[in-house]
Computed example of a mutant assay.
Amino acid sequence: MAKTNAGRFFEDYAVGDVLTHAVPRTVSGGERALYHALYPARHALFSSDEFARSCGLPASPLDDLVTFHVVFGKTVPDVSLNAVANLGYAEGRWLHPVYPGDTLVSQSEVIGLKQNSNGKTGVVYVRTTGRNQHGTPVMDYCRWVMVRKKDPAAPAPDTVVPTLKPVLDPADLVIPEGLDFTGYDFAQAGEPHRWGDYEVGETIDHVDGVTVEEAEHMMATRLWQNTAKVHFDLTQRPEGRLIYGGHVISMARALSFNGLANAQMIVGLNAGAHANPCLAGDTIRAWSEVLDKAETAAPGVGAIRLRLVATKGGAPFDLRGEDGRYKPEVLLDLDYWALMPI
């Protein structure tokens, strides 16, 4: 009897399958330190206990994307070990802050399947929920992944494509209990720009760039226990190791500090596309567009909907060609909600 796990292939999934992912992960200040070493992350709420307490939280939570990476990483052996590419995200919500000492687990449900016309691959849709040691959901999201078939002759499953919200309604967003920006210290946060200073349609060039190195990508992918073969095994993609898409997300989010230092907490993920592959040696730059704004019930807290685009070259604010496709230099197109002081 085989004791090793070669991962699931497309024909191994069925709509309704519930996948309980190994291994529980207790997070600590070590994750914060490594996250801030890997990315130029410096949002004040995730850097200072005192700043977080001044905003009504008991202490500084771990960066929202640390939660995402840990929850996501747990799913890889069961969902995307044999993936060709991670295609998109929808209906992502951060439901409860994660603090050092919390233990996170993940579970996914298969909500859709669609075999591709080549008969060699198919798209698997899953909804994943991460919970802490108390069973409290900390985040959930949907994603869809292109997965290889082990046997191209295996029969195609019935096509089920789930209906997902293109955008989360502001009422869907969960504001952390106690969050209060009425006494927000803009000088400590790093920029004076508040919710009312941003206009829908405004674009922001985040100016800086960071070149992705093999070493940091390998460290990051191992940190999140992401075992997808394309990130480690050069025989999978001889042109180079594919950089984990979450690495690009975190790098772009960190770069967006310059111009969006007060977009403190990510609370919703509306949509996301890894438009083109990122390889070691690429220099990531980022720009944002303000898509929408909404008030919340929390004192002094507004929600701002942002498009975050990461590129490896080209002019800022240049997203698609005349054919409607993403330009080859575009790496990431992410649509998210964040919380900002009014």
Results as ranks from 00 to 15, higher is better:
M1N: 08
K3C: 07
K3H: 14
T4L: 14
N5T: 09
R8D: 09
R8S: 13
D12E: 08
L19W: 05
V27N: 10
S28I: 08
E31R: 02
L34P: 00
H36L: 04
A37F: 07
L38F: 14
P40F: 06
A41L: 03
H43L: 10
S48M: 06
L57W: 00
P58M: 12
P58W: 13
A59W: 03
A59C: 04
L62E: 01
L65D: 09
V66Q: 13
V66L: 12
V71W: 12
V71D: 06
P77F: 05
A83W: 00
A90N: 07
G92Y: 02
S106Q: 06
G119Y: 08
G119V: 03
Y125I: 10
T129V: 15
R131A: 13
H134E: 12
G135F: 01
P137G: 11
D140G: 12
W144S: 01
V147D: 04
R148E: 11
K149P: 01
K149H: 06
A156T: 01
V160H: 08
P162T: 08
V167L: 12
A171S: 15
V174W: 04
V174S: 09
I175N: 03
G178D: 08
L179R: 06
L179Y: 00
R194C: 10
T211D: 03
T211V: 11
V212S: 07
E214V: 14
E214A: 12
A220Q: 13
W224V: 15
A228Y: 02
F232E: 05
Q236S: 05
R241E: 03
R241V: 04
L242T: 09
Y244M: 11
Y244A: 13
H247M: 14
V248S: 14
S250T: 10
M251N: 02
A254P: 01
L255S: 04
L255K: 09
A261D: 08
M265D: 00
V267F: 00
G268K: 06
N270I: 03
A280G: 10
T283Q: 12
S288N: 10
V290H: 10
P299A: 06
P299V: 07
P299S: 10
G302T: 03
A303W: 00
A303C: 10
L308S: 11
V309W: 01
L319G: 09
G324M: 11
Y326D: 07
V330S: 02
D333S: 13
W337D: 00
L339H: 03
M340C: 15
